[in-house]
Amino acid sequence: METVIDLDKVRKQYGTNVAVNDISMKVGKGEIFGIVGPNGAGKTTLIEIIEGLRYADSGTATILGKDIRKHAEEIKHRIGVLLQSTSIPGKAKVKEILSLYASFYNKTSTNTDVTRRLGLENKQNAYFKSLSGGWKQRVSLALALINDPAIVFLDEPSMGLDPNARNEMWKMIKQMRDEGRTIVVTTHYMEEAEVLCDRVAIINKGQLIALDTPKNLITLLGGTKRIGFKNVGQPNKEAIATLPFVTKVDWSPAYIELDTSNIDQTLKYVFQLAASENWDVTELKLHESTMNEVFSEMTSEGQGIA
């Protein structure tokens, strides 16, 4: 896979506070790459270094094969950025905004193309401030795409959107990827990272603490797949606790929950045990951990695993 963003020991310090602590990572062409982390983790600083808004104190950031420090203007022609929607004057009309931003670049996808792709045909004469949150976000996205960029940076793309608008946004982002662009997304929503991203970097206290596919990150944590069923027919607590792969039992008079490192095998043994002890498995619930849990696990204690 061709590398489009290559960070090598990028470091940025404000006074004694290390905002970005020697982060190295590579982003490949055509991925949707997520950057997540708690507030103040350093992800904004990191993104701003990649976008050429700030200079790193040390280390190098190579974007599309060029050092951002030396070729910022050239690189800016080839990236698109979605910031939060307030950064557009409310009294401007949609078509005026699009045509203004088109004039900043030496290469542009035609206005009509971007307009059609984002369904903005009927909003051309609308004032920006009159648009709803979802439409504002579409205009912002149109600006990010107006130079037909190789890399698109999206800062909290679904912040403040209702569930429908958010699904639309995700669809558009995936479409951008399918056109061959690389997408870098920062988000607070772990669900977004899980559904949308091909790979996710978790940043905490300025450090890269994990980088993998959402699926692998979840597996990496291990032991957090759960099986739950109703506590009826007097199952043997001892026998359940010693079933293969079970790592933990939460026993209550009403309900039993097991943590397991192998949900398929454990399930098989639960049914065998139930048959031999002559009770029924009822109200069965299976639960696989989500990015949300990975995130809180990794960032709350301040300990990394990468």
Binding site: E51, G52, L53, E73, K76, H77, I79, V81, L83, Q84, T86, S87, I88, P89, Y101, F104, Y105, N106, L143, F153
Partner: peptide
């Protein structure tokens, strides 16, 4: 006002000087 509203920040990520 343009700076306070982030309009200049938005310009900054484009090649405009």
């Amino acid at each position: 006002t343009a700076r306070e509203n982030g309009i200049l920040r938005r310009f900054r990520v484009t090649p405009v000087r």
